[in-house]
Structure formats: structure tokens, C-alpha cells
């Protein structure tokens, strides 16, 4: 059984390199789901289509999630629907950006 909260904490180690805020607080992680024993599915997005950090961020999310206890397999899917909006950010992230 995967502890999804532990995964979420691990994902907080993955930062958008340009903004300097982690992907969880940015609201980029749409879905975390254990689809079968030890197999984790992550649905995420980027702040903008054509973000040059695409590869790095999605691969880092995959790597970070794999560090969580009980995770044997990770599938990361990048989606554009629904598109990311600033409202998806956490309060902390908004404060950091001065919004």
C-alpha cells in the first residue's frame, strides 16, 4: 500500500527551476493514484504548454515519486486539460510570488 501523502511530500522536492516553487504548491499535480499494488499513477500539467522544463520536471516527478516507500512502478502522464491557472497554486506559493 502506497502512502500517497508520503509521495506528495517527496514531490515537494521537485521544483520548477524558473519559478523556484515546488510542483505540489504550484498545483501542477492533478492526480495521485495507486492503480494496483505498488503501482503509482501521476497526472500532472505544466504552467504553460511548450514549457522548456517539460522533460526535466516530469522526469524529476517520476524519480521523486519512486523514492517513496512502497512505490515499485511510476507512470507520469502530462495533460493540458484542464489547463493550469494561477488559482491552482497554494497560499504559500501565492505569497512567494507576491500575489
Amino acid at each position: 500500500m502506497i502512502d500517497l501523502e508520503a509521495v506528495r511530500e517527496k514531490l515537494k522536492e521537485v521544483y520548477d527551476p524558473e519559478i523556484g516553487i515546488n510542483v505540489v504548491d504550484l498545483g501542477l499535480i492533478y492526480k495521485l493514484e495507486e492503480v494496483e499494488e505498488g503501482s503509482l499513477y501521476i497526472e500532472m500539467t505544466m504552467t504553460t504548454p511548450g514549457c522548456p522544463a517539460h522533460d526535466n520536471i516530469s522526469q524529476s516527478v517520476e524519480w521523486a515519486a519512486a523514492q517513496a516507500f512502497g512505490v515499485a512502478m511510476v507512470q507520469v502522464e502530462v495533460v493540458w486539460d484542464p489547463p493550469w491557472t494561477p488559482e491552482m497554486m497554494s497560499e504559500e506559493a501565492r505569497e512567494m510570488l507576491g500575489l
Binding site: 503509482l40 517539460h54 522533460d55 516530469s58 522526469q59 517520476e62 515519486a65 519512486a66 512505490v71 515499485a72 512502478m73 511510476v74 507512470q75 507520469v76 502522464e77 502530462v78 495533460v79 493540458w80
Partner: peptide, 18 residues
């Protein structure tokens, strides 16, 4: 070890590794 797809190519998602 987790299963890793081709670099950046995510099953069912957007191909980002260009």
C-alpha cells in the same frame, strides 16, 4: 525499481522529449 518509459514520453500523455 520503478518502470521508466522512454525519456519524457509518457504513456497516454503528451510527448515532451523533443
Amino acid at each position: 525499481m520503478p518502470e521508466r518509459g522512454p525519456s519524457g514520453a509518457v504513456p497516454g500523455g503528451v510527448i515532451t522529449s523533443q
